[in-house]
Design a protein around this nucleic acid. Structure first.
Lengths: 185, 185
DNA sequence: CTGCTTTTGTTGAGAAATGAACAACGAAAG
DNA sequence: CTTTCGTTGTTCATTTCTCAACAAAAGCAG
């Protein structure tokens, strides 16, 4: 694949997220995005049909890159390993400026939702291993925990990563284990 | 002018300076530069004849950009104004990672020399206004002061800019005035 | 020295990006 | 309402960049 394509896409999406931090989505113009990306206005239309498509593709792409950051190699274990989680947190830390906007911008709830869904999928695996106390449904439990994890990650990024990825993974693991033991028979 | 030209040049020079920080000039390859700049190897040859030309042009370009940062608009006063100096220090602060390498890398003394020459030119104007004590030649005085200023700037950048541009300009002005009064009749 | 690998510098065909133009649309101001 | 202005989305000729290939030179191990 021609490297110019991926490079242009990256520059445009990066500029777009940057603008999203400064002004409202509706106030953003294609010309503004092109200027910030240091790209011709026509080039934006070469890769995205319009603003809304750019938003969708950005959410999709950055979510995929986050998922890839922990899924690369390592076989297809059902449960996410400690190393994979650390890689994900490290990746988030390196691209914190992007993901802070994606997670906190109130005009873009899509990313938070999609990310929570992904986390839920992985937490469900863990939840299914446990024998829960009668009365607590597994899907409710998984939903509750995944929202919690999303919130924790958001807090970590907004607070400029006050702990190392290793510390965060350790803390998170401990909390999850404690919760699951608390509500299991 | 086609924006791709300037963009490619910038990406390549930036990658080059970055590599210069990590390895010796002679160990750097064109392929390595191209990789880091995310550019085809052929593109490097499109703008620079070889490694050495790239080095020369980088020194020249970054020196010019530093000079431009304080010379833009403001008419052609003989003496650099406080505002111009603050702009220059602010510019240096914003591109500290580049200029730290350019000033400290021992394989590239050219940049330091050229920068000192530029400073000397401006300090000479100030020195010529003063009535120096007999026995101190103006050119020696100018040389002495310009080297001092260069060293001060290097220290400021290497120490990660411990003072604001405004503070630095104020300090520098005071020192220069004190020196000049000390040695004038 | 000899073979082996890496790097260099160049080429050409094809792909992508550019600048400049255009009509169409919506918003704001008179 | 009309005019102005900025934005949109599209077009096209031109320029730059890419990729792959190449021969030649340089670096290096045995």
């Amino acid at each position: 694949m021609d490297r110019r394509i991926e490079r242009s896409r990256q520059m445009i999406m990066q500029a777009f997220i940057g603008l999203l931090e400064e002004q409202d989505f509706e106030k953003i113009t294609i010309q503004g995005i092109a200027d910030r990306a240091n790209v011709n206005r026509g080039t934006v239309y070469l890769h995205f049909t319009d603003k809304y498509d750019l938003l969708e593709q950005s959410v999709e792409t950055y979510l995929m890159m986050l998922v890839d950051s922990c899924l690369q190699e390592e076989g297809v274990a059902t449960e996410l390993s400690r190393e994979q989680l650390i890689r994900a947190f490290t990746y988030l830390k390196e691209h914190a400026s992007i993901y802070r906007v994606l997670m906190t911008n109130k005009g873009i709830p899509t990313f938070r939702h999609r990310m929570t869904q992904f986390i839920k999928g992985n937490i469900t695996v863990v939840v299914n291993y446990m024998n829960l106390e009668t009365g607590i449904h597994r899907d409710v439990m998984a939903q509750f925990l995944s929202i919690s994890v999303t919130g924790l990650i958001e807090w970590w990024i907004v607070e400029s990563m006050p702990y190392t990825p290793e510390e965060m993974v350790e803390q998170m693991t401990k909390i999850l284990e404690a919760r699951l033991q608390l509500w299991s028979t």
